[in-house]
């Protein structure tokens, strides 16, 4: 039984179907990447897992329990925590306060909290230096570390990350992904959504490629990295069609020039 099992979920925004029957699985201690272009449905997937969006059909099971309709704050308590896109840290609170909120559900177990906080500070020494500073004044990379640190505080068994490399320098992006990889090695499952395909595939165990709300490819990360189709899916996946269609178009245009095409 996998730790996370998503089965054929459909999610709508108004009339727009953002996820059209998506299924994925994540095992304990595994790092899984979800790749895809903007608007493919990556963020919606993570939001649905976290209970911020509701699937109209299909099911989400975590640790063998159905969480399709569970409230977002309860899902965190079960051990699934998300690092949202754009970090979404609490900018008007200090670094230490942000971390304290990560431990909100354990707020009566100060001893344990202190230990977890020390682990976070060990992982991200920069955060320890800035603990009294307002989070809004941190640099982009530090904010990302805080967002991850805050999620670590909730004691997750599955941590999902939405575009952790967004807006970071390649160097920093790589560093963040490697840290995340280490979580998986320590037994925390990781589901990471990335646009930066190459880097994500370099550290993940497995990967899915998402296109317009559906999984179009899946497999071991190393296989996918070598796969030509991944490049295509990442690049939009329509180069082939373009070439074919363009060829046909040119044939046609010779005979029947389009009325709107000409200038």
């Amino acid at each position: 039984m996998a730790l996370l099992e998503v089965d054929d979920i459909h999610v709508f925004y108004g009339n727009i179907e953002a996820l059209r029957g998506l299924s994925i699985q994540v095992d304990g201690g595994e790092m899984v990447a979800v790749l895809g272009s903007n608007g493919a449905g990556k963020t919606t997937t993570l939001r649905t897992l976290s209970g911020l969006e509701r699937a109209r059909a299909g099911s989400v099971r975590f640790d063998d329990q159905d969480i399709t309709r569970t409230a977002a704050h309860e899902i965190v308590g079960r051990g699934l925590c998300q690092v949202p896109e754009g970090r979404r840290i609490f900018t008007t609170l200090t670094v230490a306060e942000n971390l304290a909120l990560g431990g909100y559900l354990m707020r009566n177990r100060q001893q344990e909290l202190r230990q977890r906080r020390d682990v976070v500070y060990e992982t991200f020494p920069r955060l320890a230096e800035r603990r009294g500073q307002l989070a809004g004044t941190l640099s982009g990379g530090e904010q990302q570390m805080l967002a991850i640190g805050r999620a670590l505080m909730t004691q997750p068994r599955l941590i999902t990350l939405d575009e952790p490399s967004l807006g970071l320098s390649p160097l920093l992006a790589r560093a963040i992904l490697k840290i995340v990889r280490r979580f998986a090695d320590e037994g925390v499952a990781v589901l990471v959504v990335e646009q930066n395909a190459r880097q994500a595939l370099a550290v993940a165990d497995r990967a899915y490629v998402l296109e317009t709300g559906r999984i179009v490819l899946e497999g071991a990360a190393s296989d996918l990295a070598a796969d030509e189709r991944v490049q295509k899916a990442y690049l939009g996946g329509f180069e082939q069609i373009v070439e074919e269609e363009e060829g046909r178009e040119k044939e046609k245009e010779k005979e029947d020039p389009s009325p709107l095409g000409g200038g």
């Binding site: 992982t123 991200f124 020494p125 920069r126 955060l127 230096e129 990379g141 570390m145 390649p170 160097l171 920093l172 992006a173 790589r174 560093a175 963040i176 490697k178 840290i179 930066n196 395909a197 190459r198 880097q199 370099a202």
Partner: peptide
């Protein structure tokens, strides 16, 4: 190519420490 696709680098530990503020 580097900016967009990333490059696999050798010196990982140093990078990591540099980025997170560790010694």
């Amino acid at each position: 190519i580097e900016a967009y696709l990333g490059r696999d680098d050798a010196d990982e530990e140093a990078e990591l420490a540099e980025a997170t503020g560790g010694a």
